[in-house]
């Protein structure tokens, strides 16, 4: 019941924007490894992935817990595009597809590596040259 009400309320609120919303195509999220199982059902991940990630980031970084079921690197390994090896970079990439559509800023990839299986190349510029 609550769900129906929420839906109705959001429909009413969204009425003025209906016309425009129709013009933007829903993102086509490409699942790269359809035969594997995500850590949680898609519906739950769609709604709560940010809470899950934030919860785990604090446990990993602040408490030093490793090896949890949820990990950002785990997401990348599975969801990185087979084309460019990354979860961002274009409208077809897993994270960017929805975030561009929803106009929600992606902050993770300023610091986290968005490419699967990435290993920094040999030191491009020796930072240890004495003097």
């Amino acid at each position: 019941m609550a769900r129906v009400l929420t839906l109705l309320a959001s429909l009413v609120l969204a009425l003025p924007f209906q016309v425009h919303a129709g013009e933007v195509a829903k993102p086509a999220v490409k699942i790269e490894n359809p035969d594997t199982q995500c850590v949680a059902p898609a519906e739950e991940m769609r709604r709560n992935h940010m809470e899950v990630l934030q919860h785990q980031r604090n446990r990993t970084l602040r408490l030093g817990e490793r090896g949890a079921k949820v990990s950002l690197n785990g997401c990348i390994e599975c969801h990185a595009s087979k084309t460019n090896g990354s979860v961002i970079g274009g409208k077809d990439n897993f994270c960017e597809a929805c975030h561009a559509y929803a106009a929600v800023k992606l902050d993770c990839w300023d610091c986290h590596q968005p490419k699967a299986g990435y290993k920094a190349a040999a030191v491009a510029q020796p930072s240890g040259e004495n003097k």
């Binding site: 690197n73 990348i76 300023d110 610091c111 986290h112 590596q113 990435y118 290993k119 920094a120 190349a121």
Partner: peptide, 13 residues
């Protein structure tokens, strides 16, 4: 801005 972080060592601008 950085793009060459190792996956286990996030660091950024």
């Amino acid at each position: 801005p950085l793009t060459t972080q190792n996956p286990e060592v996030p660091r950024g601008l």
